[in-house]
Design a protein around this nucleic acid. Structure first.
Lengths: 217, 217
DNA sequence: TAGCAAATACTCTGTGTCGGATATACGGAG
DNA sequence: CTCCGTATATCCGACACAGAGTATTTGCTA
C-alpha cells in the first residue's frame, strides 16, 4: 500500500471517466454532475484542473488533442494511458479491500464534548437527532422513487451505503441522548458538577485515565 | 453557520486544551497523544504549528510568554483569549448539533465500483469484510478492558462511536457480498456481461439513468 | 563512565487542496 | 439589441499535510 503520487479521489473519478472515452475537464465535471457522483466525490473547478494536471505530469493520462471552436476557450482533450488504466484498477481495488481510517468532524466533536456542560450537549444532540432523521427520511424517499423507476441499484449504491451509516449514527445519538437524560450514563453527575464548580475535567482524572489508556495500547 | 476562518479540527482541540491551561505547542501535541485524541483528530507537527499560528493571527489565542531553558529550543506558551473561548463553545456546539456531509474514500470507491468486474469486486469486498471484523474485535477488547478498569466512558466515547459505525459498514458489506454472490443483486448479470464483452456501463444506460436521477432531484 | 537512544521543541520545504473570482465567447429569449 | 445562461477554462491566496532536519539534553545500559 505504498503512497500514491496522486491521492485525491477526484483523480480516481477522472481515471474512471477516461476509461470510457477521452474528455476535456469541463466535460468531466458535467458528466460527474449528471451521474450524481458529486454526492460522493468532492468536486470543484480548482481541484479538477489541478488534479488533471497532476495526472498528466505522472503520465496516467495524456493530451489527445487541443481544439478551439470559434474564439471560445480552448478545450484540451485527455485520454487515459496504459499506466493510468493500471493505476485505476489498482487504486480502486485498494479502496474496496482495505478500510482506512477517516477522521470525521463529529468524531472530533465527541472527543471534545466534555468541554460543554451536559445539559447543553443534550440540547445540541437532540437537534442533531432531528436533522439526521429528516435526512434519512428524505433519502429513503429518493431511493424508493428510483427503485420504482427501475434505476439499477448499482448506480446509487453509494447513496444506500450512506443511508446505512446515517442510521447507525442516529442510533448512537439516540442512545447517548437517553443516557444523558435519564442519567444511565454514569459519568453525567461528575461531568455536570465539573461544569457547575467551573472545574474542568481535572488534571488528576486525566493522569489516572492516562495510565489506564496506556495499559491497553 | 458562516464559514470559520480557522477550520481545521485540530484548532478546535487546541482551543480545548488552552481552556484548561496555557501550553506550548509541543506540550499540546503530547497531551493529545496521551489522551488518545490522536485517534479522532489528525495531528502532525506541520499542521499543529501552522494551526497555532493561524489561531494567533485571528486572536483566538495569544502568546503568554516565551522561555528558554538552557540552550534548548525556545518554548512559546500560548493562552486562550475571550474570543477564543467563545469560538470554542460556538464551534463545538455547531459540530455536535449539525450533521455535515463528509466524503469518505469508501463511498467514492463504491460509486466507481462498476468499473471493476463483479467477481473481482466480490473478492475485494470479502477481504474488506475480514479486516473490518478484525478491527471490530480488537476495538471491543480495548473497550471492555477500559470498562473493567473503570475508565469513565466519557473519555472514550468517540471510540465507541467509531465502533458503531464500523459495525454498520460491516453489515452493509455483508449484504452486498451476499447480493453479488447469490445473484440476488439483480444487476449483477448485466454488470458481468458488460465486462466480459468489454463494453463499459454504456452511454445509453447512463442517458436513461440521468433522466431518472434528474426527476428526483 | 562512555555511549547511545529517546525526549525536547521546534522549523522548513514542497506539494496538494479549496473555494471563489474572473475572463471571454456564443446562442437564444424577450 | 440586450441580457442571460452555458461553454471552457485560468488564477489566486489561504490553508493543510507529511515528513525530514536540527540541535540540545536526559536517562539508561553495560
Amino acid at each position: 500500500m505504498a503512497k500514491r503520487r496522486v491521492s485525491n479521489p477526484l483523480a480516481l473519478a477522472v481515471l474512471g471517466l477516461l476509461t470510457e472515452r477521452p474528455m476535456h475537464p469541463y466535460e468531466m465535471s458535467n458528466t460527474l454532475r449528471e451521474r450524481a457522483k458529486e454526492e460522493s466525490i468532492k468536486l470543484n473547478y480548482g481541484s479538477l484542473y489541478s488534479v488533471v494536471e497532476s495526472l498528466q505530469r505522472h503520465q496516467l493520462i495524456e493530451v489527445q488533442e487541443t481544439i478551439r471552436e470559434g474564439r471560445r476557450p480552448e478545450r484540451t482533450i485527455y485520454a487515459i494511458t496504459d499506466a493510468g488504466r493500471t493505476e485505476f484498477v489498482d487504486w480502486l481495488s485498494d479502496l474496496l479491500a482495505i478500510p482506512v481510517k477517516e477522521y470525521t468532524q463529529f468524531e472530533a466533536a465527541l472527543s471534545l464534548m466534555p468541554g460543554l456542560p451536559p445539559d447543553e450537549v443534550l440540547r445540541l444532540l437532540q437537534t442533531r437527532r432531528t436533522r439526521l432523521d429528516t435526512e434519512i427520511v428524505a433519502t429513503r424517499a429518493v431511493l424508493d422513487d428510483l427503485a420504482r423507476q427501475k434505476l439499477p441499484y448499482l448506480f446509487v449504491i453509494e447513496i444506500d451505503y450512506l443511508q446505512e451509516i446515517r442510521r447507525a449514527e442516529l442510533a448512537f445519538v439516540d442512545r447517548l441522548v437517553a443516557g444523558i437524560r435519564d442519567g444511565s450514563l454514569e459519568d453525567v453527575d461528575l461531568w455536570r458538577r465539573a461544569h457547575e464548580t467551573g472545574e474542568l475535567p481535572t488534571e488528576q482524572d486525566w493522569k489516572e485515565a492516562e495510565v489506564k489508556l496506556r495499559s491497553v495500547d
